[in-house]
Design a protein around this nucleic acid. Sequence first.
DNA 1: ATTAATTTTCAAAAACTTTTGAAAGTTCAA
DNA 2: TTGAACTTTCAAAAGTTTTTGAAAATTAAT
Lengths: 168, 168
Amino acid sequence: MKLPEAKAQFIQTWGLLGAQWGVNRTMAQIHALLLIAPDPLSAEDIMGGLDISRGNVNMNVRELMNWGIVEKVLVPGERKEFFIAEKDIWKVGTAIARERKKRELDPILKVLLQLNKVEGDPKDKQVRAFRETMQNIQKFAHQTDSALNAFIKSEENWFYSTLMKVIR
Amino acid sequence: MKLPEAKAQFIQTWGLLGAQWGVNRTMAQIHALLLIAPDPLSAEDIMGGLDISRGNVNMNVRELMNWGIVEKVLVPGERKEFFIAEKDIWKVGTAIARERKKRELDPILKVLLQLNKVEGDPKDKQVRAFRETMQNIQKFAHQTDSALNAFIKSEENWFYSTLMKVIR
DNA sequence: ATTAATTTTCAAAAACTTTTGAAAGTTCAA
DNA sequence: TTGAACTTTCAAAAGTTTTTGAAAATTAAT
């Protein structure tokens, strides 16, 4: 397989993967394009590379910056703004995990955990079934949280051990 | 908080949570309704409980059965079909993780891992950047896979240790 | 201050997903 | 068989998300 074909396939596959993990397809594709670009890209480069509008580029690049996996750089002698992606995929993966956990999982679980304080007669079948489900969820939430934290932590370990190798 | 209010809040929160994790909202709500129901529910019960159409119930219940977290049961003396949800949340969580990994992550990663076989001159900056990114992804895929497997495995441990307690 | 280059915004259009409900299909008791 | 009870299908409607592109805002050079 030649490079241009491989690039195109990577962009489209990364887009599909992103979509399945709750990231908008175009956002993932822009990220892919930046990931494999050896140099910073301008808004025009992205528009041309993916054949999308200026507004769309602006919107999704901004969101990628919010997620902390893309940043703006200034190229000396150029008026335009350029963008680069975080190239370390582990950092990308854990940034996404951390972000989604914080924004999505944590607040909703807070609500769920309150619900086992429901009033009612413990002899009532309905009340018992409800409480039991809520308690199960509470335990599950705790375990999921640990698993995610372990994942995020394992990244830190990997990151620092690699850093050590690089610094020597 | 009284039971009916708590139930309503659980259904709507579980729906939101599901939507964020790639499950259609109604599907998650049907699952929630079945989770807190002490007895099997019919299609009518679900239609009434969530105020949705028959077709919608049929479609989403079928999908929940595909995921392996809801099943059809027959109530003696009743013509209708009834449904129950898997009540063990760990089983639900790991079923979802296993299913999504198998259907979504694995096939896409297979494609990505092939892409570092791209042809090209290693002196070419473009080729080098591309290969490096692909190699990073390969390592990441492997680690994510291990983490997910650990999660799925931890469930099995929990499940069997609980089983032991129940059997005594 | 003016102008040209560039970025940002946002309302409308397009694309995509979900839901409905009526019609078709199935099952089973009589 | 028949027909009532029930389930499934699917085309059209409703709802949601994403994209566009032109206008407004910003920036920087002259």
